[in-house]
Design a binder for these strands. Structure first.
Length: 368
DNA sequence: GACCCGTGGGT
DNA sequence: TACCCAAGGGT
């Protein structure tokens, strides 16, 4: 027997076993249609955009806030950009919000309010790439599209014992996923694979004994499941340094805010004025106005996708009549929630408005 | 393919 | 603490 290679998983065994498991174990999620309900493409699309690189638990409150305020694509298309960015604040990857707005306006406008019902048509829209096009086509329109996200990559790599590292393995894994995709209820199949990846076939310690596919899994048969998928080594994150200025106006306690350029890091979001963020050497001071700036003892640390940031916070109190410098705006504390403040800037304000302690400025949308 | 682009929770 | 990684897309 030694040396015998386990057979590859068979679609006629895998898909039905997965469907049976899903019927009993599907997660109840806000954007999922109940059995017998017709899925709403708008809600499917919105949830898939929010779920890009973002956990189910994080998305929940944002999804409720968006659908409550903008129940259909026409409402969203008609909303102010700033209102949408503000509602998105804290979710991250803000280009998603900018593309969400563009996409909603295309659908509500030239497409007459209807999302394309094909993978190819969906893929032409802003913010919709290969994953989202396949997911919306399958889930909202019952198209047999091969959905491939991080969960399904992991499940496929294990099922087929694929040892090629990601991301090079992606085309192979996509073919495996396509081979297993049934023509009946492909959307449920995709969601079942994602639930399996989230609940059973987890990154660290897969719960193989409870897996409905264990008998078909080549990775498990070879004792490799927990090691797959392999990944190319990732680069180390550098640390950047910066200065952030919290100016507080006497009387109402308003703070000075600006807006970041419309694209790039935190594009279009609100910010406290500050220096450049330098990777080498000390950042050049750039106070927004002349004042008695005091350095706070506590620095603000924040990690972005590709670098760590360490901000020194400087605070000053200024007279009530101080005019806002060009491009900046005085914002009273109670009005902060109306501005699209990314998390790093919430941290800066929390430090600057409550120096020794560390009081939190809650996001407009939060768990529980 | 390489690089850019947030954030929070788990370990 | 440090690292991993999540229902990825754009350039």
């Amino acid at each position: 027997m030694t040396g015998m290679s386990p057979p590859p998983p068979r679609p006629d065994r895998v898909a039905p076993a997965l469907a049976r498991w899903y019927a009993a174990n599907a997660r109840v999620l806000p954007w999922r249609a109940r059995p017998g309900e017709v899925p709403d493409p708008y809600r499917v699309w919105l949830s898939e955009i929010m779920l890009q690189q973002t956990t189910v638990a994080t998305v929940g409150p944002y999804f409720h806030a968006f659908t409550g305020r903008w129940p259909d694509v026409h409402a969203l298309a008609g909303a102010d950009d700033q209102a949408i960015l503000t509602a998105w604040a804290g979710l991250g990857y803000y280009a998603r919000a900018r593309n969400l707005i563009r996409c909603a306006r295309v659908v509500a406008g030239e497409l007459g309010g209807r999302f394309p019902d094909s993978e190819a048509g969906l893929a032409k829209l802003p913010g919709i790439g290969p994953y989202t096009a396949a997911a919306v086509a399958a889930i909202a329109f019952d198209r047999p599209a091969a959905v491939l996200d991080g969960n399904i990559e992991r499940v496929m790599a294990r099922l087929f014992a694929e040892e090629t590292p990601l991301p090079a393995a992606k085309p192979l894994l996509r073919r495996h996923a396509a081979a297993l995709t049934p023509t009946v209820r492909p959307g449920d199949h995709a969601q079942a694979l994602m639930d399996l990846g989230a609940l059973i076939c987890t990154p660290r310690r897969p719960d193989c004994p409870r897996c409905p596919l264990v008998g078909d899994c080549r990775g498990h048969a070879l004792g490799l499941a927990a090691e797959l998928p392999r990944r190319a080594p990732k680069k180390a994150k550098p640390t950047r340094l910066g200065l952030a200025y919290v100016a507080i106006r006497a009387g109402d306690g308003a703070v000075l805010l600006g807006r970041r350029p419309p694209s790039g890091l935190l594009g279009g979001m609100a910010e406290v004025p500050g220096s450049d963020w330098t990777e080498q050497g000390a950042p050049a001071p750039r106070p927004p106005l002349s004042a008695d700036w005091r350095r706070l003892s506590r620095t603000v640390r924040h990690t972005f996708t590709h670098f760590h940031l360490e901000l020194t916070v400087l605070r000053a109190s200024v007279a009530a009549a101080t005019p806002a410098p060009a491009g900046l705006l005085w914002v009273p504390p109670q009005a902060l929630a109306g501005h699209p403040l990314p998390t790093v800037m919430r941290k800066v304000l929390a430090a600057g408005l409550d120096s020794p302690g560390g009081k939190r400025i809650p996001s407009r949308v939060r768990n529980s």
